[in-house]
């Protein structure tokens, strides 16, 4: 699956975040607009190993550390459109995502209920801020239009859409069932609706 996508394996990138900030911003932009795996591989190769060192210190356990890295980088891949280079550097944005995930992971480990969650304190990845600018996707789609495009959705997106919209499950239930992070469910839903919209546009 990784064919043709170089994960800078050989070169140790020793640059500091400031030195490659503009480059990483550009990569994130390409990820957001074109879902470009090559660009994401650049971001990933730079940040994932560094995140792992941070995560190991914070979680003190290899498995949890790698979970933190994966959740963080997964959000970077899926939410790249929420990165705003005018608001801060890529390293600050990625750090805040990792900090939020770590905060929630620790709460979960300590079995705290009805507690304060990271979104309450630092709404780094709140879709609302991005979404309020455009009309809800469903308002732009009409019933007959979508029908036969639905089958063209990727299997994973279709699964999530089916579970939520046919079985009426909550996003959290879907996440638990498929054993994927809640953020992944949300972004699959968003991507699916976006894709449907794009397909409609193409056929207009």
């Amino acid at each position: 699956m990784l064919i043709g996508i170089p994960l800078d394996q050989k070169r140790n990138d020793t640059r500091q975040p400031k030195e490659c900030s503009a480059e990483m911003s550009a990569h994130l932009d390409t990820v957001a607009k074109q879902r470009c795996k090559v660009s994401f591989s650049k971001v990933f190769s730079y940040f994932a190993p560094r995140l792992r060192s941070y995560a190991l210190k914070q979680m003190g356990n290899e498995a949890l550390a790698m979970e933190l890295v994966q959740d963080t980088m997964s959000n970077v891949w899926q939410k790249a459109h929420l990165f705003n280079s005018e608001k801060g550097s890529p390293s600050t944005w990625i750090f805040t995502i990792a900090r939020n995930i770590r905060f929630d992971m620790l709460r979960k480990l300590q079995n705290r209920k009805e507690d304060v969650c990271s979104d309450d304190l630092w709404p780094v990845l709140c879709e609302q801020t991005a979404d309020t600018k455009t009309a809800p996707l469903d308002e732009q789609i009409t019933l007959e239009q979508v029908g036969h495009y639905f089958d063209d959705l990727p299997v994973k997106q279709k699964k999530v859409i089916e579970a939520i919209y046919i079985s009426g499950k909550s996003q959290q239930e879907v996440a638990d069932e498929l054993e994927i992070p809640l953020g992944t469910v949300k972004s699959r839903t968003r991507l699916a609706l976006q894709r449907l919209k794009d397909m409609l546009k193409e056929h207009d």
């Binding site: 994960l7 994932a48 980088m73 997964s74 299997v155 279709k158 699959r188």
Partner: peptide, 21 residues
């Protein structure tokens, strides 16, 4: 990391051959 990278990005694979569901 190679595995992680593909797990993260495989969401985007199109379901061209798989018509389950």
């Amino acid at each position: 990391f190679v595995n992680m990278f593909s797990e993260i990005t495989e969401d985007e694979e199109l379901a061209s051959t798989n018509n389950n569901g």
